[in-house]
Design a protein around this nucleic acid. Structure first.
Lengths: 197, 197
DNA sequence: CCCAACGCTGACGTCAGTGTCAGTTGGTAG
DNA sequence: CTACCAACTGACACTGACGTCAGCGTTGGG
């Protein structure tokens, strides 16, 4: 039974940690930085988390879960929206989430891998689950002639990587970050690739 | 005037460091790990590098330079190979390099960002230079009708990210790592995207 | 009003990893 | 044989981030 008080403090610490990690990266960030930003004493931190890796893992896992949660499976009923619109809506949700949480994009897509073997494993499992789900969707798409032929895992890897990089670049300001433009760019790429015909 | 002796030792240390970083990630890796793998005393390390970040930076910068160096600009002369073949050859070189250096793929594409602000800056400059070069190539391609219209920065971001993720996944074994298949997959994606027409 | 439970504090001891440097080794030239 | 020097060694002193815990306020139910 976590009291509302506890829950609030926990959230404050998570937000402070997110900002510190986004700013200094995992290595340079210290627990002292986090508690300082939170205006709280060192010991308090350890009432809520085991250590630096624990908060980091909580942040990243939570964000990945939110990303995964923003993806709805594509309905094929006669009264459902066209699959392409459902795909676009999924993309739009992910992009919106990312633009709402620029710090988490930096952390989860930029810093999270290679920090700790155990965390890597957890993230790999997330990724595998998401990948399997999308693979099935793609398979259906191929059966219905909506998705071109080819090795689905390779296609997925490229598509997911492309989206990730686009979001990273948008957050870093390397690229304009208008949500609609980003979604369009991805849709166009999925639709036509890069080369003319 | 670096003696061949010195140069050799330096290379040994770099290789040891690469293996350690690939295995344990940046955070968990220690200078002791590196010298142990190299069969050399602690002090020796500091005759060649300032500290852990210095070797890391040397490894990553060198790898990025090799990647950039494996990309040739696309010639348009009447006696040159078709642009698409030149593009494929560039891709093939990058893929070959990546498969020859799986450890460096993990490090450079997985761990390198967010480790240190100064290093991030250096990498960002690399990325920007490469991106600008490719942007010009793409612009020419658009003028010649070989590349479809659209915001080049966005297209590039997606394409580069897609390739990176594919290489990461290939190295991690999430995806078959046959070089030819990987090159084909990317070419198909650039050619046709993901969706059927 | 009381006090028990809860949340919080921050100084403190610990320790893993760091970087140094006085001393050793081994190859080479005179 | 000796003198030299570049390369190497590894014990040592040091650092700073870590996690703890005994004690201090605060809050709210009785």
């Amino acid at each position: 039974m976590t009291s509302p008080r506890r829950e609030l403090r926990r959230r404050q610490l998570l937000e402070a940690a997110r900002d510190v990690f986004a700013e200094k990266g995992y290595v340079a960030a210290t627990v002292d930085d986090v508690v300082a930003r939170c205006g709280v004493a060192r010991g308090t931190f350890y009432l809520y988390f085991d250590d630096k890796l624990d908060v980091f893992g909580a942040l990243v896992s939570d964000f990945f879960a939110r990303v995964a949660g923003s993806i709805r499976s594509i309905e094929l009923g006669a009264d459902a929206a066209p699959p392409r619109e459902q795909l676009r809506a999924n993309l739009a949700r992910v992009v919106t989430l990312a633009m709402d949480e620029p710090g988490m994009v930096k952390i989860a897509f930029g810093t999270a891998f290679g920090v700790d073997p155990a965390l890597d494993e957890r993230l790999a499992r997330f990724y595998a689950a998401l990948s399997t789900f999308m693979d099935e969707t793609l398979q259906t798409g191929q059966r219905l002639g909506l998705v071109r032929g080819g090795d689905r895992r390779l296609m997925l890897s490229i598509a997911i990587g492309g989206l990730q990089q686009l979001l990273r670049d948008a957050v870093d300001g390397h690229v304009p970050s208008d949500e609609h433009a980003l979604v369009d760019a991805v849709m166009d790429f999925l639709q036509s690739g890069l080369l003319a015909h």
